[in-house]
Amino acid sequence: MKKLLLSLLLFPLLCLAQSYDNYTKVTAIRMVHPTREGNMTVKGYVEEGDRIGARIQGAQEEDEALAFALLALKKQAKNWQAKSMPFVPKGYDTRLQVPNMYVVQVNRFRDTIYTTAGNASIYFPEEEMEYIDPGNFINGALTEKLCFLAERNFKDEFITHQNDSLPVSQLLLNGKGIYGYTRKGFEKNVQKFDRVSTDSIFDKKKIVVDKTFWINNYVIKFEGKLQNFTAMVLPGADYPNKAVFTAGGIQLEDSEEKLALAFPCSLEYRNWGASPYNMGDNYYYTVHLMDDKGYVLFYIKNKKVDKIEVEFR
């Protein structure tokens, strides 16, 4: 009987969708670790512009059956047992009021379903009411990927997780190490700069002059010894004297698959730094430098390395 009711609710949604060339996406977002005095709901975190990482995690599916099932359950929920849940905008509570949201997009139509811990109920923020799932229907509708997202103990994993690391000797520009140089030492031992840009930063007490040095599409900044080095893809740029930077054997425009082979632990959490609504692009992975000398960030765009940022300590 429960399955029949769900099927009847799905039928008009399916008929509507079949009149279009379908674009269907379900974005699941889960708050995994709130901050003290932070929002008590995933909705609050996402609205503040939080990105995929230590606070929120997410996954996406392009699955019509999943999308229509979630929409049907939201409609059906008004027949379930209701319970008042006043909205608490700020605070600190490890129980989390409403940690999950599912954003369903079918062509131009878009709706959001909020659920409590374990997907035990559907929450309607405008009513400040939760409707208790009587038969575990929500979890039953989810795909294996989204079930794993809902159950995974991210908070404890993050405590024990270790990213990969590499020695500074594997940071090479045209085969030469870049670590530990002042500006003059860099030009003498590695390569001369193509150009320099200067910015004046004003504060209340003084003017600070910020200098940025360039070698092709590589940006270098110094504060005494080298502080950071950024390599980035600049579409359409052509350089007569090509320079190649590699970090642990990875260079710009290498595939994400090659990066995964080189640093599997760092790539364990996909989409770190991505927008909650577009997890498939513009994210990064972190690789530490040995002996606490800093870190390397590999930014991904279109499944390729689009930027490499090195920050030295």
Rank of each mutant, 00 (worst) to 15 (best):
M1C: 06
K3R: 12
L5Y: 09
S7L: 14
L9G: 15
L9K: 10
L10M: 15
L14I: 10
A17Y: 00
Y20S: 15
V26I: 01
A28D: 04
I29T: 15
M31Q: 14
H33A: 14
P34Y: 00
P34N: 07
G38D: 03
M40P: 01
T41R: 08
G44P: 00
Y45K: 07
E47W: 02
I52A: 06
R55L: 04
R55F: 02
Q57C: 07
G58Q: 07
A59Q: 05
A59K: 08
D63L: 00
A65L: 05
A65W: 01
L66A: 04
F68C: 06
F68V: 08
A69L: 02
K74R: 13
K74L: 04
K74D: 12
Q76D: 14
A77F: 03
W80S: 11
W80L: 11
A82G: 12
K83P: 02
M85K: 12
T94M: 12
Q97W: 04
N100R: 06
N100S: 07
Y102E: 12
V103Q: 08
Q105F: 01
V106Q: 01
F109S: 13
R110Q: 11
T112E: 04
I113M: 13
A117C: 04
A117I: 10
F124A: 11
E126L: 10
E126D: 14
E128D: 06
E130S: 13
E130V: 10
I132N: 06
G135E: 09
F137P: 00
G140Q: 07
L142R: 01
E144V: 11
E144Y: 03
E144S: 14
L146T: 05
F148K: 14
E151C: 08
F154A: 06
D156K: 11
I159S: 06
N163Q: 09
S165W: 01
L171E: 02
N174F: 04
I178S: 11
Y181M: 05
K184V: 10
V190R: 03
K192T: 13
K192N: 13
K192C: 07
F193V: 11
S197Y: 08
S200H: 07
K204F: 09
K205I: 09
V208C: 03
D210W: 02
K211Y: 12
W214L: 11
I215D: 10
N217P: 02
K221Y: 02
E223A: 15
E223G: 12
K225M: 09
Q227I: 09
N228L: 04
F229E: 12
P235C: 03
A243T: 05
F245I: 11
T246C: 01
G248K: 03
E253G: 00
S255V: 06
E256H: 07
E257P: 01
E257T: 13
K258S: 12
L259S: 08
L259W: 05
A262L: 03
A262C: 02
A262W: 00
F263R: 00
C265G: 02
C265I: 04
L267Q: 12
L267T: 15
Y269E: 09
N271I: 02
P276I: 05
M279W: 01
D281K: 05
D281L: 05
Y284I: 06
T286L: 12
V287A: 13
H288Q: 13
L289K: 11
K293A: 07
Y295P: 03
F298I: 08
F298Y: 15
Y299N: 14
I300Y: 01
K301T: 14
E311R: 12
